[in-house]
Simulated assay, not measured.
Amino acid sequence: MNSCIFMAEIVQDPQLRYTSDTQTAVTEFLVQIDPIRDGDAPETLKVVTWRKLAEAVPENFHRGDRVVIEGRLGMILFDRPEGFREKRAEVTAQRVHLISHGSGGSAAMTPPPAASMPSPAPVTPMNPEVAGPSGDEPLSDDIPF
């Protein structure tokens, strides 16, 4: 099973777009993960969300916010303009939990309607600060792991 959970800071505001063929919502953003060892550089990962979660993320999360992301890790292979192929890690998120707002986010947040935050399984956060904007449930996608 491919599953990961990690804490990170959003370093690029989420960008919402729609696929040209099916008009499916897709949001992409960059997060930075703190290094494990002192002196190491932080890691940057691209995070992708789909459907209802993709529509809710840009409204509720902004650059500077600390989040916990649950999802699947994948490797993307693409051609570079320099003429070689590069592999890059990418996370497809199923849930995004807010830990704290950064200075780039808005002070007052309006949570999306409950219908836009389906959860594949009931979630009871151990810490209320880790829950989604409504405080009772994390934002999640309806894609099973």
Score class of each variant (00 low, 15 high):
residue 51 R to E: 12
residue 86 E to N: 08
residue 66 R to M: 11
residue 72 R to M: 09
residue 76 I to W: 05
residue 88 R to L: 03
residue 61 F to Y: 15
residue 56 A to V: 03
residue 61 F to L: 10
residue 63 R to S: 10
residue 46 K to N: 08
residue 41 A to W: 04
residue 60 N to I: 01
residue 56 A to E: 02
residue 68 V to I: 15
residue 76 I to A: 06
residue 42 P to N: 06
residue 61 F to C: 11
residue 54 A to W: 04
residue 79 D to Y: 06
residue 78 F to K: 15
residue 81 P to S: 11
residue 50 W to F: 15
residue 70 E to W: 02
residue 87 K to C: 08
residue 58 P to F: 11
residue 40 D to P: 07
residue 79 D to I: 01
residue 37 R to P: 00
residue 47 V to Y: 02
residue 74 G to F: 06
residue 53 L to M: 14
residue 62 H to Q: 12
residue 37 R to Q: 14
residue 55 E to S: 10
residue 69 I to L: 10
residue 87 K to V: 03
residue 61 F to R: 00
residue 62 H to N: 10
residue 75 M to Q: 13
residue 62 H to E: 14
residue 87 K to I: 01
residue 66 R to I: 15
residue 79 D to C: 01
residue 84 F to R: 15
residue 79 D to K: 15
residue 37 R to G: 00
residue 81 P to G: 05
residue 47 V to L: 02
residue 80 R to V: 04
residue 67 V to C: 11
residue 84 F to T: 13
residue 82 E to C: 10
residue 41 A to D: 11
residue 77 L to V: 06
residue 57 V to R: 00
residue 56 A to N: 07
residue 54 A to M: 09
residue 45 L to P: 14
residue 79 D to P: 08
residue 50 W to A: 00
residue 72 R to I: 08
residue 42 P to Y: 06
residue 66 R to P: 02
residue 71 G to V: 01
residue 44 T to S: 12
residue 81 P to C: 06
residue 65 D to L: 07
